[in-house]
Every structure is written in structure tokens, then in C-alpha cells.
């Protein structure tokens, strides 16, 4: 069970959270102007990295905030956690695979 660092509450056990979504996926601004393929890509296609993953968590039995974590899918190391509209400066994680 991971310890997830909620940006508001600090590190809390994983059971307090609900996993939400892949944070690298953006909802198209104007869905009516995208092709069926583009829309299906948005709905279903996800990278499944063996390495760093940006994802959204909901602090379900806590502050009810959504936030982004950068987690390594093999070691579960969490390198960063921040509010969705407040991404960190580019230098935070540069490696595409392998723990720091």
C-alpha cells in the first residue's frame, strides 16, 4: 500500500484515495471538430509505460482534492505531486524510464 503525498494533507495511505485518470490525456477543446479516430484515441488509447507515469488521484476520504502524481510504475516511487492546474517547473522529472 503506497503512501501518496497529497499536496494539501501530506503523505497518506493509498486506501484514502481513488485512482482517477491518466493525467497526460487532455479532453479536446471542441469535441465536434475531431475525427472519430481522434475521439476514440482520447477515449481508449493509453500509454502503459514501464516507468514514469503522470496520473490523477482523488483524496476520497480526505480533502476531496484531485491532484497529479508522477509515479514510477515498477518501483512505485512518487517523484512529485501537485494540483492539476499547477504543474511543476520542467526540471522536475526528465527521465522517461528508470527510477532517478
Amino acid at each position: 500500500m503506497m503512501l501518496i503525498p497529497c499536496p494539501w494533507c501530506g503523505p497518506r495511505p493509498e486506501c484514502e484515495f481513488e485512482y482517477g485518470a491518466d493525467a497526460t490525456v487532455q479532453r479536446p477543446e471542441d469535441p465536434s471538430s475531431v475525427t472519430d479516430d481522434e475521439w476514440t484515441e482520447y477515449l481508449y488509447f493509453r500509454d502503459n509505460p514501464k516507468g514514469w507515469h503522470k496520473e490523477l488521484w482523488f483524496h476520497r476520504t480526505g480533502c476531496h482534492h484531485w491532484f497529479v502524481t508522477e509515479r514510477h510504475t515498477v518501483t512505485h516511487e512518487i517523484a512529485a505531486a501537485y494540483p492539476p492546474s499547477d504543474p511543476p517547473l520542467p526540471a522536475a522529472v526528465t527521465d522517461e524510464e528508470g527510477p532517478e
Binding site: 482517477g20 482523488f58 484531485w66 492539476p84 492546474s85
Partner: peptide, 13 residues
């Protein structure tokens, strides 16, 4: 409720 919060916090802040 969680879905509405997701939309308000992440998609349409």
C-alpha cells in the same frame, strides 16, 4: 460527486 469534482478541478477549472 467525484465525477463532478473531477470536471470542476481538472477539466474546467
Amino acid at each position: 460527486y467525484e465525477f463532478l469534482e473531477y470536471l470542476l478541478q481538472v477539466v474546467w477549472p
